[in-house]
């Protein structure tokens, strides 16, 4: 049995289709990533799976329980960490934890071994009000609260948005550790670089799933040639490259532009077409998940 099984799930808000018959399944004990830009439907999917929303069409089960019929059972089995910090800012760290333990009918001691690796980071501040914590500490507290009842599936909606790079890395380390304890984790993120930390990822955009695979397989499927190009006048370079023969597309990527080409492409011919650019460098480069995402999105 899959931990999460989703069958052509759809949800619309007015005329906007937030989710358009999404189907996939997540294995038990898997760290599954939902990668996509804002508005891809990640939050809607999480809200459906945590029974905060009812689907328009399709069905989904969590540990075999239906999200509509058995919503009550599901609520005590899943942990949910919304994208927005949503603990009580007026309660202290300790009070928040005790409060959520009480809501689930457990005590902090019972689950302490599970949350200890995370909670130990913020335990020195346990008498501080949650609203006064730093962003990274808030996330750790929210994760502790989401884990307090030993959920079998954990939903993390953009847990690292607005958190600094070091804390983000630390956060993903913690998730990997949780995975070893048999908890199935679904995390969404707009950051493509975090995708490699997941066992499998789903690329989604505008309510559709573009592809589901391991991060490595997604990259391996990339079948075009990719070059990183640089010059002094980056903007003109972008314009000129887009007009050149054999170029499928050219887009800014960090410090350079990425150039996607087909069989007609010839490096020397391309250089001639570009004309005079100072400090022009063209190097073949390995595709990343972001390149794949852009390619799938354009299709």
């Amino acid at each position: 049995m899959y931990a999460v099984e989703i069958n052509s799930l759809s949800k619309s808000f007015g005329k906007t289709k937030a989710l358009d018959s999404v189907t996939f399944a997540v294995e038990r004990g898997e760290l599954f990533g939902l990668i996509g830009p804002d508005g891809a439907g990640k939050t809607t999917l999480f809200r459906l799976l945590t029974t905060l929303l009812n689907p328009d069409n399709g069905s989904a089960t969590i540990d075999g329980f239906d999200i509509v019929k058995d919503y009550h059972t599901i609520r005590s089995r899943v942990g949910y960490m919304p994208g927005r910090f949503s603990l009580y800012p007026d309660l202290t760290v300790e009070e928040n934890l005790n409060f959520f333990a009480a809501l689930f009918g457990v005590t902090v001691e019972e689950s302490y071994d599970l949350i200890a690796p995370i909670y130990s980071h913020i335990e020195p501040f346990r008498t501080r009000r949650a609203g006064k914590l730093s962003g990274g500490m808030k996330q750790k507290l929210a994760l502790s609260c989401a884990l307090i009842h030993r959920p079998s599936v954990l939903f993390l909606d953009e847990p690292t948005t607005g958190v600094d790079a070091v804390s983000r890395c630390e956060f993903w380390d913690m998730l990997s550790e949780l995975k070893t304890k048999g908890i199935t984790i679904l995390a969404s993120t707009p950051y493509m670089d975090e995708a490699s930390r997941c066992d499998r990822i789903a690329l989604c955009d505008k309510g559709h799933i573009l592809d589901i695979n391991t991060p490595q397989d997604i990259v391996n499927k990339y079948d075009s040639n990719l070059y990183a190009i640089n010059a002094d006048n980056m903007f003109n370079l972008l314009e000129a490259s887009r007009k050149a023969t054999g170029v499928i597309e050219c887009y800014p990527f960090g410090e350079s532009h990425h150039l996607v080409t087909n069989e007609e492409f010839d490096l020397n011919h391309y250089k001639e077409e570009l004309g005079d650019f100072k400090n022009l460098t063209i190097t073949p480069t390995a595709p990343t998940i972001e390149d794949m995402f852009i390619k799938l999105m354009k299709r």
Binding site: T50, T51, S76, V78, Y80, P82, S86, L87, L103, F104
Partner: peptide
């Protein structure tokens, strides 16, 4: 407004 209602809603309360 503060979003805490979401967190409460996913509990069995």
């Amino acid at each position: 407004e503060s979003g805490t209602i979401e967190q409460i809603n996913v509990t069995p309360v």
